[in-house]
Write a protein that binds this DNA or RNA. Structure first.
Length: 599
RNA sequence: GCGUCCGUAGCUCAGCCGGAUAGAGCACCCGCCUUCUAAGCGGGAUGUCGCAGGUUCGAAUCCUGCCGGGCGCGCCA
């Protein structure tokens, strides 16, 4: 998969060389594998059985089951033809010799429950603080091509509406997540500036152009975009060209107006994206792909390999239609990749289908990517097979394409469904919502649910209930920590350095263990391409912190800020700082500002 | 009809490359502010994990089939 030597030099990272010692789960997994190594050596266990195992070490749900647990003995018992408990006992003995391990107990049918020495957790906390913003960050993959993530790609026919919002946020957060996990990432936007809808846009702009020239144009004709956002475009065209194209035949102005209107719409869209904190690295033009001859090249390659052939499709299912006639077309053999039927890449008149161009576009992207991710709306689910198949064919499977389908956002306004139709001009723009509730709330809302499930978004209720939005809960935890840091600074007290972490109590150590799961969460979320897991993790960390905080309400001795005990203060401050660090990193991936203060 | 996604507490949802008594928020009940920011915390109550089979030592998680809902099923984009 990696194509060494083809890419720019990878950025060095702060934790270069030793990323794993900050990931206690990876560390303990290595220890588990080491404990199992004798079984591989004596032939009891096949190495591939061990390798095929999923996560070996997990945080147990029940604290009675230790701080870390592994079910490896259960999973491997069959392959090793061993009694799981006996296997677990051998593992436990080996693990107990690890200096970091305080206890390793066999439990239940064959779990091994681990507790680490308090000093091991203390060392980890020190390491977290030393790592700072690098904590949990993946080591760079080295000289490989970037992961390409294409998202938004809204048609350039108007400003962004809420239907685009979810894919935009999920794509951006996923890009942040992958970058944090150590990948080079390219954010790309595919501008559909070649289809019939941009001709409609050009005609709509021409209408506004005549309007700007003072012509009495009346109602916007059906079939044109009625949105007022085209008025400035018409005015700009009038200012630039005067009445030169007012009565000219369409052929004289259409390409020009199309180009100007698309450029104006992309400016609108870029501004909308910026309001959400989103910036793409590359904007690729469908028209340019078309003009470049890339589709012809892709067709030639696929024909040579027998994956494009001339054939006649079955008539469409259902109602017999008048305009259908059996025609021989160049077809991509998508049925070889699990599709229902083969798909035409050109029409009867020889022009390219959307798929024909998209295929060529993905071929070009694949040449500069180690992996590709497309974020699409769920209404495009029917086209996933063909494009995944095409990419597999064109890259011989070397460049994986993951098409993530983002389900619809159903918009409500005070319980009433809001219709969204560009044609009718009545849609809720992204900007309206962002301006009212803020980008952080919008982003967090979009990330607190799996993208493949539908999301109901009640405009009014989000505005009203924003105080109860989970984003505030996380930001509040961060703000509280900042507040204590300010207080310490103002007090002039110098916390003991190094902090005597041994003084942390059991409840405080529970939070350390939560923070220890951060690198694992990043790894797993990145591997699964699921940024929402970060949002849920942050909520858990915030909950852990708030619980500690409130102990101080009942008992002042349990407060973070204990001015008469600089040692204890230092230890608690260290924990709080590490917590704030993790919250900042997580919020950074989600693209949400970590509040310094919340009043 | 076919494909795809969803179906877990009253509501909104986590958990899903199998693991030890199923979790959170909201709503409901009971407590906690002469305040390290109560936008918080503690406690209580709430579930045939859509249904039925199967695989397994073990299934909310994997497989099959149903049921219910969303989206899609053109040489559109």
């Amino acid at each position: 998969m990696a194509r060494a030597g083809l890419s720019p030099v990878a950025q060095p990272r702060a934790n270069d060389g030793k990323p794993n010692e900050l990931d206690i789960f990876l560390e303990m997994e290595a220890a588990v594998e080491a404990a199992l190594a004798p079984l591989v050596d004596d032939g009891t266990l096949r190495a591939d059985a061990l390798a095929s195992l999923g996560p070996l070490v997990e945080p147990p749900r029940d604290p009675a089951h230790g701080e870390l647990a592994t079910s490896a003995a259960l999973a491997l018992a069959r392959a090793a033809r061993a009694n799981p408990r006996e296997l677990a006992a051998r593992m436990a003995m080996a693990l107990a010799r690890d200096p970091r391990v305080a206890s390793a107990e066999v439990a239940g049918p064959g779990f091994v429950n681990l507790r680490l020495a308090p000093a091991a957790w203390d060392d980890l906390l020190v390491a977290i603080l030393a790592a700072g913003a690098a904590y949990g960050r993946g080591a760079p993959a080295g000289a490989v091509l970037p992961v390409n993530i294409e998202f938004v790609s809204a048609n350039p026919t108007g400003p962004m509406h809420m239907g685009h919002c979810r894919g935009a946020v999920v794509g951006d957060a996923l890009a942040n997540l992958l970058a944090f996990a150590g990948h080079e990432v390219v954010r790309e936007y595919y501008v559909n500036d070649a289809g019939a809808q941009v001709d409609v846009l050009a005609r709509s702009a021409h209408h506004r152009y005549r309007e700007a020239l003072g012509e009495e144009v009346g109602e916007i004709p059906a079939g044109l975009y009625p949105g007022a956002y085209l008025q400035p475009v018409g005015a700009a065209l009038a200012a630039e060209f005067g009445d030169r194209f007012r009565a000219a035949p369409e052929a004289e102005w259409l390409p020009l107006f199309r180009k100007r209107a698309v450029a104006a719409m992309m400016d609108l869209i870029r501004a909308d994206l910026q309001a959400l904190g989103i910036r793409h690295d590359i904007f690729s033009s469908e028209a340019e792909v078309l003009a470049s001859g890339a589709p012809q090249a892709a067709e030639a390659e696929l024909r040579a390999r027998g994956l494009v052939y001339d054939g006649v499709l079955e008539p469409p299912r259902g109602e017999p239609s008048d305009d259908w006639a059996p025609t021989e077309l160049p077809l991509f053999r998508s049925t070889a990749f699990g599709d229902d039927v083969d798909r035409p890449i050109r029409r009867a008149d020889g022009s390219w289908t959307y798929f024909g161009v998209d295929l060529a576009y993905h071929r070009a992207k694949a040449a500069r990517s180690s992996a590709m991710i497309d974020i699409w709306g769920a209404d495009h689910s029917g086209t996933v097979r063909r494009i995944v198949g095409a990419v597999e064919a064109l890259t011989d499977g070397r460049v994986p394409l993951d098409v993530k389908l983002v389900q619809m956002v159903r918009l409500f306004r005070a319980g009433e469904p809001v219709r969204m139709s560009k044609r009718a001009g009545d849609f809720v723009t992204l900007r309206e919502v962002v301006d009212e509730v803020g980008p952080g709330v919008v982003r967090f809302m979009m990330l607190t649910k799996r993208p493949e499930a539908m999301l109901d978004f009640d405009f009014a209720s989000v505005v009203e209930q924003s105080r109860e939005n989970p984003v505030f809960y996380v930001q509040y935890a961060h703000a509280r920590i900042r507040s204590v840091e300010r207080r310490v600074a103002e007090s002039g007290i110098v916390p003991v350095d190094p902090p005597p972490l041994a003084r942390l109590d059991a409840d405080e150590r529970a939070l350390v263990r939560q923070l220890a799961a951060w690198p694992r969460t990043v790894r797993m979320a990145a591997d699964a391409h699921e940024p929402h897991r970060i949002a849920f993790f942050l909520h858990e960390v915030a909950a852990g912190f708030h619980a500690l905080w409130n102990r101080g309400n009942d008992d002042p001795a349990l407060r973070l800020f204990v001015p008469d005990d600089p040692g204890l203060l230092a230890a608690r401050l260290a924990l709080a700082r590490a917590t704030a660090q993790v919250l900042r990193l997580g919020l950074g991936i989600l693209g949400v500002e970590p509040a310094e203060e919340l009043r």
